[in-house]
Structures are given as C-alpha cells and as structure tokens.
Write a protein that binds this DNA or RNA. Structure first.
Length: 348
DNA sequence: AATTCGGGGTG
DNA sequence: CACCCAGAATT
C-alpha cells in the first residue's frame, strides 16, 4: 500500500473525535485552524468551544469588539491571532456578505491566514488539493523520505511543500491533510515514537538508517533575552487601581497591565524608587511603597525571560482616573498579570 | 533571510 | 533545561 493510502487508512481508525472534524462550515474550520496555529489540540480545544459558544457565526464575531475577543483569547498566547481573527471576521461580513472565499488563493488574502491555513481551509471545506505543511508534516516527511534539508530554510520550505503537494490524495485532500498531521501528532511523535507499531515502518528511511532522533533537521535556536519589568499596583481608598492598555507593536499588544516601568538591569528598591521614571509617575502624590514579591517572578516566554517585580503603591487618591478592582477581570491581560491578580486578591 | 510574536507540555 | 506545537507577519 502506498504512503498516502496507508495514512488515510490509519486515520480512519485512530483519528480523534474533534468538534471541527464534524463540519465543513468554513467559519468553524477557519476558527479551529487559527486557534491551533503553534498550539497543541489539548490547549486549543477549550478555546474553540468557548469561541463557538460565544460567537456561533462570523457575524457574531464581527459584532464583538476587539477587547471582548482578546478577553476570550486570554491565556492562549500569540495575540495577533485574535486581533487578526476579529479583523478578518469584519472583512468577511462587510466585503463578502459573511461568506468565506472558496479557493486557496483567495483565502491567502485574509489577515492571519498563511500558506498552511489557506491550504487547510481550501482542502477541508472545498476539496481543493492544496497540501498543508505544518510541524507534523515536516517530521513525517523528513523521516519517511530521509530528507535532511533544514525545515526552516527557504529551500526546505519549498522542498517540503512540493513533496507534500505531490503526495496529496486529490479525491479526498481534506482527509489526507488531516491524516498526515494526526499521524505526526500521535504516531510519528517528536520524541520516542513507537516505531514497532507504525504502519509505515517497512519503508521508513529514518527508521532503517537510525535517524529518527535527528530528523527533521532544524537550524539555529532562538536566543532568549532577559527583561526587567516593574509593575506599579496602585491601591486607593476608593477601591480603584490604574490599568493601562498596551500600545505599540510589541508583545501583548492591546492587552492591559498595571503601569509598567522597564529597567535595563535589576535595581535595588532604593534605586528603583529614586529613578526618574518612577519619580515622574508619582510626582506630587503621597504614597506608601512596598514590594509584593521579594524575589523576582520569572515569566518565561519562548524568546524572553521577564524578571518581574510587583510594587504596591498605596495612595489616598490616584494620579488619574482608575478602574474599580472588581472590573479588573473584564480586561484582557497577559498570564503574568492575571496570575498576580488571582494571587493578590484585591479587597473588592 | 532573520526575527518576533505566548504559553503550555514533554522528556 | 531544550525542544515542540495544525504558523503568520514583520523587518
């Protein structure tokens, strides 16, 4: 039996029953694909269910405001996905009367939809034979065919896309695409795959050349930078604190946080209190200053380690209009901030 | 072509 | 700790 047929047969037996697999509705499929970008199914599934529950159609999603969408996305990471999701929902409603485009080429025009996602939607919803190439596909193809071109090189990206395209089952491209991904996730796992029960063990290059551990090949590791974050948590008699929307194009865009003072290095409490930035924020205000966490909370992201201090600033009146403690939960925040709010327990 | 975007899971 | 995840957008 050939490679593709073996995969689709395996899939028909071992596939998980997932909600987006019971429909060809492009809204549902699109939503699932955006949520699952760089995200494992177990992490994304509850978000998919919550989004379908809150926004059953593209019109419901378009009618929401971005803050609400980000709030429902909170904790999933890569928040540009949520912002683009909302933008594209409005685009679909306003430009296409709520109907999704039906071809790979047109889908590619949507914000947040790249080669992978356009291929997935086109094949699953409209039976267009466009091959998906995600992390699972790279692994399965690299191992089975013995390809050592780096998967994150321009050459590798083209090579694997072409190979995947040549293998796709044109009669049932959606099932084939999902089959090879599911196979990569469940059978041809990154670490310690059980090749003894693999239906492809007979012809797998990596298995017969002891290259399961070394394929696929990936170049360069991401370097991690360290940053020092100081959040000012205002406590006032009127049960309000300062909470600000992050602007600019960096991390956590449009999420909310306590006033942030970033420093180049770790400062002593005295150095921090006397720094110009802190002084300007607290200019002319009577306050009591205390450090909530005596050792830094280190929030680890894939490319940044955030060494974080939460400073409690007790004031009689806030320097500007704040929000009620009890309203903090209505704002989308990074996990780092949300963890603090949960732990600190504001006297609501 | 390289970097930047999160957070959770695995070994 | 290193690596991975149904990648895309930006620089």
């Amino acid at each position: 039996m050939n490679f593709s047929k073996t995969l689709t047969n395996w899939y028909s037996i071992y596939k998980r029953d997932l909600p987006w697999r019971n429909t060809k509705n492009p809204y549902n499929v699109w939503l699932s694909e955006i949520i699952l970008q760089q995200t494992q199914i177990n992490q994304g599934l509850p978000y998919y269910l919550a989004f379908i529950d809150e926004y059953p159609t593209v019109f419901d999603l378009a009618n929401a405001n971005e803050t609400e969408v980000l709030k429902l996305w909170q904790g999933l990471g890569y928040y540009s996905r949520a912002r683009n999701l909302h933008t594209t929902a409005n685009f679909i409603v306003n430009e296409f009367d709520g109907k999704f485009p039906k071809t790979y080429k047109e889908l590619l025009q949507l914000k947040g939809v790249g080669d992978y996602t356009a291929s997935a939607i086109a094949s699953i919803c409209y039976d267009e034979p466009t091959a998906v190439v995600d992390g699972n596909v790279y692994r399965v193809l690299a191992r089975f065919f013995g390809i050592d071109t780096p998967i994150n090189s321009t050459r590798g990206i083209k090579e694997f896309k072409a190979l995947a395209t040549s293998l796709i089952d044109k009669k049932n491209p959606g099932d084939y695409n999902q089959a090879i991904m599911e196979f990569g996730a469940r059978q041809c796992k990154p670490k310690n795959p059980d090749c003894t029960v693999c239906p492809l063990k007979g012809s797998c290059y990596a298995l017969h050349h002891s290259k399961i551990e070394t394929l696929p090949l990936k170049l360069k590791k991401t370097k991690v930078s360290t940053k020092y974050f100081n959040f000012l948590v205002f406590i006032s008699a009127d049960k309000r604190t300062l909470f600000q929307k992050r602007t600019g194009n960096g991390i956590w865009k449009n999420l909310y946080q306590f006033p942030l003072v970033e420093t180049k290095s770790e400062l002593t409490p005295e150095q921090f209190k006397n720094s110009p930035k802190v002084a300007s924020i607290l200019k002319g205000i009577a306050f009591e200053f205390s450090l909530y966490n005596t050792t830094d909370i280190v929030h680890k992201l894939s490319h940044q380690h955030l060494h974080t201090k939460f400073w409690i600033v007790e004031v009689n009146s806030l320097p500007e209009k704040g929000i009620l403690y009890r309203d903090l939960q209505n704002y989308p925040t990074p996990v780092l901030i949300n963890n603090f709010i949960d732990e600190f327990k504001f006297p609501i």
